[in-house]
């Protein structure tokens, strides 16, 4: 299982970790298309890549919209 753990700090001092599971991801592009902050980009292999962790607000839309249980966003207050 490939898990990319990218801890991040926002201006509001929140720790955010975005977990992407390549074993579950089917490269549908939904997370890339719908992130309101443009956190994700599509990599050369078609998988999403977390390109701008610092922009993540922890809104969880990618988590709710992902059909494949491949994205989780951990927000530590």
């Amino acid at each position: 299982m490939v898990i990319l753990i990218l801890p991040a700090k926002t201006g509001k001092q929140r720790h955010i970790a975005i977990h992407l599971d390549h074993n579950l991801c089917k490269r549908c592009g939904i997370c890339v298309a719908f992130c309101p902050q443009g956190v994700f980009v599509t990599g050369d292999d078609g998988y999403p890549v977390v390109a701008a962790t610092e922009k993540c607000t922890g809104c969880q839309l990618c988590f709710y919209r992902c059909p494949d249980f491949a994205v989780e966003v951990e927000v530590d207050k």
Binding site: L24, K26, C28, I30, Y64, R65, C66, P67, D68, F69
Partner: peptide, 17 residues
């Protein structure tokens, strides 16, 4: 997992919900 539904199929979203 992974489930058998196609990439972009909404059934996974409903399952999660």
């Amino acid at each position: 997992l992974p489930h058998l539904w196609c990439a972009g199929c909404g059934h996974g979203v409903i399952l999660k919900a």
